[in-house]
Design a protein around this nucleic acid. Structure first.
Lengths: 148, 148
DNA sequence: GAGGTATGGTCTCTTTCAGTTACCTACTAT
DNA sequence: ATAGTAGGTAACTGAAAGAGACCATACCTC
């Protein structure tokens, strides 16, 4: 009861929501919302995985490609580019032959690890519960439309 | 140097990565990865926003529709259904006429608020830096292909 | 000099699917 | 008759993702 009063997530989020409610017509201005902006980025299929793989040490393109396995080189390039563009990842080319490239987190990228780790730990811990809820839901309503 | 030793995000993530590296052929088994599973869910366009809006108190369908504004009813229904399916949101129908429906977070849903708030706060704080990195990147390489 | 290996990509084609628009139900209150 | 509930349905569209060929360079081998 003591520490929750100060840092209740609902309050934090409520304040942020208020902060985002700056659009003229009473609705939330989703277009300029920084949260949307960031979530669009890390919500893609590979970004979080790449970030976590780079957490410990820099890795080369081909190393990432080997570790992930089911990512195409195209998607790996694209993901790394957009992480680089957002300043989360730094790309270094070594002038050898054949040229060697490695990718490492920037300070900004490293600062993202903490919130991401929180989310990932939550996901890992809640996964069973979510799967159970899904099964229960799917069994209960044998007649649910909309998702068919 | 003292507390970082215990809870360094890179270490947490490294351990988790190791934990997920259970596929036979040395690659990460992205299909059964709980993180991927969860991120696919909250990575969509509306889920996080809805969750944060429900953080303070239950809300009715039309209230959510009004607040968000640029969401279609179809997407709102769909988002709420899948949140309900995953056990994050509870749907209550009151037998009035016209029937009234409200949506509230479950305990599981509430437990997601903390990691989400962490991410959202990070996003809010880092947004400027990310935008700057983007602009710098876009100006530096006037010849970047791939994203055209 | 033909072929193989390796690096770090790029290009094009195709499919898939999230999201949108627009119109529908059924009921009631005014 | 019109608006407000809480949705459902169908058709369309654009972006994301996947598959897989290709490329430039250089080294090694035969």
């Amino acid at each position: 009861m003591t520490r929750e009063h100060q840092s209740n997530p609902a309050d934090v989020l409520g304040d942020l929501i208020k902060h985002f409610e700056t659009s003229p017509e009473g609705g939330i201005d989703t277009a300029s919302c920084p949260v949307r902006d960031v979530l669009d980025r890390i919500g893609d299929k590979w970004s979080v995985l790449i970030l976590t793989l780079l957490a410990r040490e820099p890795k080369r393109f081909s190393a990432l490609n080997r570790v992930v396995g089911d990512i195409s080189k195209r998607m790996l390039t694209q993901t790394l580019r957009s992480l680089q563009r957002d300043g989360l990842v730094e790309r270094t080319v070594y002038p050898t032959t054949p040229p060697m490239v490695d990718y490492r987190l920037t300070d900004l990228g490293r600062s993202a690890l903490e919130p991401l780790a929180g989310l990932i730990v939550w996901a890992d811990r809640s996964h069973d519960q979510i799967r159970q809820a899904r099964e229960a839901f799917d069994h209960k309503g044998e007649d649910m439309p909309l998702v068919s």
